[in-house]
Amino acid sequence: MSKFGYLGNFLVLCILVGIVGSSHGQLQLNFYAKSCPQAEKIIQDYVQKQIPHAPSLAAALLRLHFHDCFVRGCDGSVLLNFTLSTKNQTEKVAVPNQTLRGFPFIDGVKKAVEAECPGVVSCADIVALVARDSVVVTGGPYWKVPTGRRDGRISNASEALANIPPPTSNFSSLQTSFASKGLDLKELVLLSGAHTIGVSHCPSFSSRLYNFTGVWGKKDPSLDSEYASNLKMKKCKSINDNTTIVEMDPGSSSKFDLSYFQLVLKRKGLFQSDAALTTSATTKSFINQLVQGSLKQFYAEFGVAMEKMGKIEVKTGSAGEIRKHCAAVNS
C-alpha cells in the first residue's frame, strides 16, 4: 500500500491530525513572568556560559527536544530514568534514544532554576527553551517558545521505538509520522533542516553503504557514489563500526545554514530519510525554494515550525506535574 493507500486510512489520519492540532494546550509567552520572573534569563545565562565550551551540544539538545515531543508530546518524558517503581524500560533506553546527549546539561539548568524558584518551572519547558537558546548561541535561528508545559509521569521505551521516525524512513513513513503529530510536509522539510548541524554514528546509515535492502554488497542507489565511497574508505570502514562519528552536513556541521539542503539535492544526504525528501515532488519543491531563497527566510520558517513542534500534545493546567528532578517523577 503506497503512501496513505486506501481512503479509510486517509480519513483516519485526517481525524487524528485534527485531534492533535487541537491539543496544543494553553501555552503562553512569558508564562513564568509572575511565578518565576527570572526563569528564562537564568536558563539563557546558563546556556550562554556553557555552550561556547561545548558547541556540539547545541545539535544534541535540539535533537533531545525533537525526540521528547514525538513521544507523548513535549512533556519531558525522554528525561526519565528507569527505576523499579516505573516497572518498564523508559524512553532513554530505546534504540532511537541510545545516542542522545545533554541529560547532565538539562540537570544543571534545572538545578539553577530550582535554586531560584523551587517546584515552579517544568523540565519540559527547560528542554524547549534550552534547545532554542543553544542554537542561538551558536549563531543559529531564534524562535518563540511559549511556556507552561507540565511534565509527564509515564515513559515507555516501546513508545519511543514506535513514534520516533528512524533514519531509514522512506517518504511514506515520514509523511505518516509527521502528520500524526499535526505537522505537514513543509514542516517535515524545515525540521529536517536541523541536520545542518551535528553528527551521527555509522549504524544510522551504514546499511546504505554495505547491505541496502538486506542484500550484502548492495549500495543505496539514491546515494551519490563518490560520497558513499568516501564514507566507506574514511569513516565507516566496517558495517560493525559503532563508534565513529560522521558530520551530517560535511564541512558545515557547526553552521546553521542551507548547506544541508544543497547536499540533499546532490544526493549527498547522510540518511535514507534525507534522500526520501527528494522522492516527493512536493517536498523536493520546498527544498528548491529554500535553496533559492535567503538564509533569513529559512531561519524565519524554521522558527515557526519549531514553535509548532514544541506544542505537540503538551500537558498544561493540572495535567502532569512539575518535577523536582528531571530524571525522576515526584514521589
Rank of each mutant, 00 (worst) to 15 (best):
Leu61Trp: 00
Leu62Ile: 08
Leu62Trp: 11
Arg63Met: 12
Arg63Phe: 07
Leu64Ser: 00
Leu64Met: 10
His65Met: 01
His65Trp: 01
His67Leu: 03
Asp68Phe: 02
Phe70Ile: 14
Phe70Pro: 05
Phe70Thr: 15
Phe70Glu: 14
Val71Thr: 14
Val71Pro: 10
Arg72Leu: 13
Arg72Lys: 15
Gly73Ser: 08
Gly73Asn: 08
Gly73Thr: 10
Gly73Glu: 08
Cys74Leu: 12
Cys74Ala: 14
Cys74Phe: 07
Cys74Tyr: 04
Asp75Tyr: 02
Asp75Ile: 13
Asp75Ser: 15
Gly76Trp: 08
Gly76Arg: 08
Gly76Val: 05
Ser77Phe: 11
Leu80His: 01
Leu80Arg: 06
Leu80Ile: 14
Leu80Asp: 06
Asn81Cys: 04
Asn81Ala: 06
Asn81Asp: 15
Asn81Phe: 06
Phe82Glu: 15
Phe82Pro: 00
Phe82Ile: 07
Thr83Pro: 03
Thr83Phe: 02
Leu84Asn: 09
Leu84Val: 11
Ser85Leu: 14
Ser85Arg: 13
Ser85Asp: 14
Ser85Val: 11
Thr86Met: 12
Thr86His: 08
Lys87Ser: 08
Lys87Thr: 12
Lys87Pro: 03
Asn88Ile: 05
Asn88Glu: 15
Gln89Arg: 12
Gln89Ala: 13
Gln89Thr: 06
Glu91Thr: 08
Glu91Ile: 13
Glu91Ser: 14
Glu91Trp: 10
Val93His: 04
Val93Lys: 02
Ala94Pro: 02
Ala94Trp: 10
Val95Thr: 13
Pro96Asn: 01
Asn97Gln: 05
Asn97Met: 00
Gln98Thr: 12
Gln98Tyr: 04
Thr99Asn: 13
Thr99Lys: 11
Leu100Thr: 01
Leu100Arg: 02
Arg101Phe: 09
Arg101Tyr: 09
Gly102Pro: 06
Gly102His: 05
Phe103Ile: 15
Phe103Trp: 13
Phe103Gly: 04
Pro104Ile: 07
Phe105Asp: 01
Asp107Ser: 15
Asp107Ile: 03
Gly108Arg: 05
Gly108Ala: 05
Val109Arg: 04
Val109Asp: 00
Lys110Arg: 06
Lys110Val: 10
Lys111Leu: 08
Ala112Asp: 04
Ala112Thr: 00
Ala112Trp: 01
Ala112Met: 00
Val113Asn: 07
Glu114Phe: 02
Glu114Pro: 03
Glu114Met: 04
Glu114Tyr: 01
Ala115Met: 02
Ala115Gly: 12
Glu116Met: 03
Glu116Gln: 14
